[in-house]
Design a protein around this nucleic acid. Structure first.
Length: 387
DNA sequence: GCCG
DNA sequence: CAGTACG
DNA sequence: CGGCCGATACTG
């Protein structure tokens, strides 16, 4: 399968908030089918590019700023992300002239006749499970602890670097046995290599032990486990002498006015959220939501993702992706679904909230995307680029 | 922490 | 706007 | 040194 051979794309493409990560999925797919793809950066040589993929919502000014070029000077096609989706889904490079990006919808519509996949014909993308498997869990689990601690400390720089390192390790196609295998890789500097060496030899990090002895860190790390409590609030609470989640719970009952609605829900239900969910229960919850979805759109796509999809026996939350053209579907489902008890945040394409079907309240996330984005969203939510 |  | 959360 | 994932997205 190399129908993308000769196609050389640069992606400025960002979709429904997953942004860089969804661009990565497009890149992976194009390369799998023999094409060449890169995420656009200032190093990109536009002379070698056949298609630039841009988000439909971007403005012309912004795009020219990013590309640092007048659009009229470009020789390649500037197409929207649907071109990329449909090329991959239909396994055939699409005629770019149907997908030429344009800032104003009316212009775009004129040039963009009915090219979108018929929903009932939309084929299922082969999910690449290899890319979802983390062969370097022995390293990432330790580095993740380090990342969390720096996050708690408010050291954004280190926590971002460690996130990048974790992501690279997760995507590696082999298990690391030796730091030589990582030398020269982006983001892997001397100190990181030393830490990895230490983990390979001893299984843990000395640095972690010293962090464990720091009371403030320990308290803040624990408090930030509560949904809605970040490091700012955690530090504030620590200074106030609130050192445990149960004392936070008591404090919040007496002083509810000091917290947002979201935080109050997180505090109240924290104990329930921290208990894991069986696959059976995930399926039961999903089934209820699914029937609600189909009540509004019989053609909708529906998949359970997240850790359930990664095969875990016990899941932290319920992750659902819906594919539909109905932009109000998510609102309707959330409002009318009997098992949904709380809304933490809600928009047309993302629900973060709480539901209950048995004895405990459970965290539920629902993503709602257009049908031709569906399998990309599913893959994205399984892969876990960041974590 | 890493990178320019 | 800052804070928080999601992948 | 200074900046760091997302022209994220929601809440208050």
């Amino acid at each position: 399968m190399d129908f993308c051979k000769g196609v050389n794309i640069a992606i400025v493409c960002k979709v429904f908030g997953f942004t860089g990560a969804s661009a990565e999925v497009i890149k992976i797919k194009f390369e799998k089918y023999g094409g060449r793809a890169e995420i656009y950066s200032d190093k990109t040589n536009l002379n070698q590019i056949s298609h630039i993929i841009v988000p439909s919502k971007i403005t012309e000014n912004a795009l020219e700023k990013i590309l640092n070029k007048k659009l009229s000077d470009l020789k390649c096609y500037i197409v929207n992300e649907e071109w990329a989706y449909n090329t991959i889904i239909k396994k055939q490079v699409q005629n770019p002239s149907f997908y030429i990006w344009s800032e104003t919808p009316s212009q775009a519509q004129k040039r963009k006749p009915q090219t979108i996949c018929q929903v009932e014909k939309l084929p299922k993308l082969n999910l690449n499970f290899q890319s979802t498997q983390n062969l370097n869990y022995h390293l990432t689990k330790e580095i993740e602890k380090l990342k969390n601690l720096y996050e708690v400390l408010g050291d954004k720089g280190r926590s971002i670097t460690y996130s990048n390192i974790i992501r690279s390790l997760r995507l590696l196609p082999f298990k690391v046995e030796n730091t030589k295998q990582l030398e020269g890789m982006e983001n892997f500097g001397k100190k990181t290599l030393n830490k990895i060496k230490e983990i390979l030899e001893k299984g843990t990090l000395e640095r972690l032990k010293s962090f464990r002895q720091n009371e403030r860190l320990q308290v803040m790390e624990s408090l930030t486990q509560v949904h809605g409590v970040g490091n700012d609030l955690a530090y504030f609470l620590y200074k106030k002498g609130i050192l445990t989640i149960s004392s936070l719970q008591n404090y919040a009952i007496i002083n509810p006015g000091e917290f947002t609605k979201t935080q109050l829900i997180g505090i109240e239900l924290h104990n329930e959220f921290s208990s894991k969910i069986s696959r059976d229960e995930v399926e039961n919850i999903s089934q209820t939501i699914k029937s609600q979805v189909f009540a509004y759109d019989k053609e909708a796509f529906f998949e359970i993702c997240g850790s359930y999809r990664r095969g875990r026996e016990l899941c932290g939350d319920v992750d659902i992706v819906i594919g539909t053209n109905d932009t109000d579907l998510l609102y309707k489902v959330v409002e009318n679904c009997s098992i949904i008890t709380h809304v933490l945040s809600l928009s047309g394409h993302k629900f973060i909230g709480v539901g209950k079907i048995q004895d405990l309240h459970r965290r539920i996330d629902i993503y709602c995307v257009k049908p031709n984005e569906f399998w990309f969203a599913v893959q994205l939510i399984i892969i876990d680029f960041y974590d």
